[in-house]
């Protein structure tokens, strides 16, 4: 901004400075039934194109599975949606009104996008209960955090969640002492506490037993509808189980969408077969 325009702004009494506008994200608008728009996104690291003209739409309440070989750009895509990485070009909108590229991680999280990492990252020194408490949707400014007390509604929600993930016995235990599978569950629980509109789940069943995998699939399916869920996974059986016959599966390859559709259709797509089986 040149000095002259700045001066004009000072003189102009009607001018509204950006810092005076309340920093409230516009309310989520999904009147077109689409919750997440990714359009024409590209990002490269040192010349390597991690994401190349990616277009992806997630409907409100949908459960979407995303599969793709290593290096297909799944994690980078999540990084872009959650604000960790800025794309070189393209646009990303949450509903019709919220521009994700203009926001940072906390703002995006508060707008209603939750993320579960590939490697379970729980706060190891805090107890299971405290982990869930921190994740709980609540005011996030410093003063409110300082004064926060659990009200009865919140307590009961915490109790519900801790039962749902089967860790009620371990509520007081530091999260660091949980088993790998338990940590995965705790993380899913934390994600639920955040009450997100969109859940990004990165390889949820890595390191889980078959029973746990089934339970996870069940849980994720039950979440769809109220939340939109995007699951990134390697495990084909799990994805088949999850997607069933009526859900959309997206195949990523070299940073863009290779194929999209029902599981049965995707599996027969010659391009997909080529990428997965090679020649």
């Amino acid at each position: 901004m040149s000095i002259i325009t700045a001066l004009e702004h000072v003189v102009d009494r009607e001018h509204v400075y950006p810092f005076l506008v309340p920093k409230q994200a516009p309310t989520l608008d999904v009147s077109h039934k689409v919750l997440l728009y990714l359009e024409g996104i590209s990002v490269s690291f040192d010349g390597f194109k991690a994401i190349n003209d990616l277009n992806l739409y997630i409907n409100d309440g949908e459960l979407r599975c995303i599969i793709g070989p290593n290096g297909a750009g799944k994690t980078t895509m999540m990084d872009i949606i959650t604000g960790k990485t800025r794309p070189d070009c393209g646009s990303a909108w949450f509903g019709q009104t919220i521009d994700l590229l203009a926001m940072d991680e906390p703002a995006i999280a508060q707008a209603g996008i939750g993320r579960k990492f590939q490697k379970p990252t729980v706060f190891e020194e805090l107890s299971v209960w405290e982990n869930l408490e921190l994740a709980m949707a609540d005011d996030r400014d410093v003063w409110s955090i300082f004064n926060a007390r659990l009200n009865s509604e919140q307590s009961s929600m915490l109790l519900e969640t801790i039962e749902l993930i089967g860790l009620q016995e371990n509520a007081k235990m530091p999260a660091g002492r949980l088993s790998h599978g338990q940590k995965q569950w705790l993380e899913i629980g934390m994600l639920l506490m955040q009450k997100p509109r969109l859940l990004l789940v990165d390889e949820p069943v890595a390191g889980m037993t078959h029973q746990e995998m089934d339970r996870t699939a069940e849980l994720l399916i039950s979440l769809a509808g109220r939340h939109s869920v995007v699951v990134v996974e390697h495990d084909m059986d799990f994805v088949r189980n999850l997607a069933g016959d009526d859900r959309t599966v997206t195949v990523l390859h070299q940073g863009s969408v290779l194929s999209e559709g029902r599981m049965s259709k995707v599996q027969q797509d010659p391009k997909v077969v080529e990428v997965y089986l090679g020649e």
Partner: peptide
């Protein structure tokens, strides 16, 4: 207070705290 637990969360995994919606820089 909960702020104290947020501090520990920030110490142990800053980016995770961010993805949970905490403004780490303000804390």
């Amino acid at each position: 207070s909960r702020l104290g637990r947020v501090c520990i969360a920030v110490r142990d995994s800053e980016s995770r705290a961010r993805f949970m919606g905490y403004r780490v820089e303000n804390v």
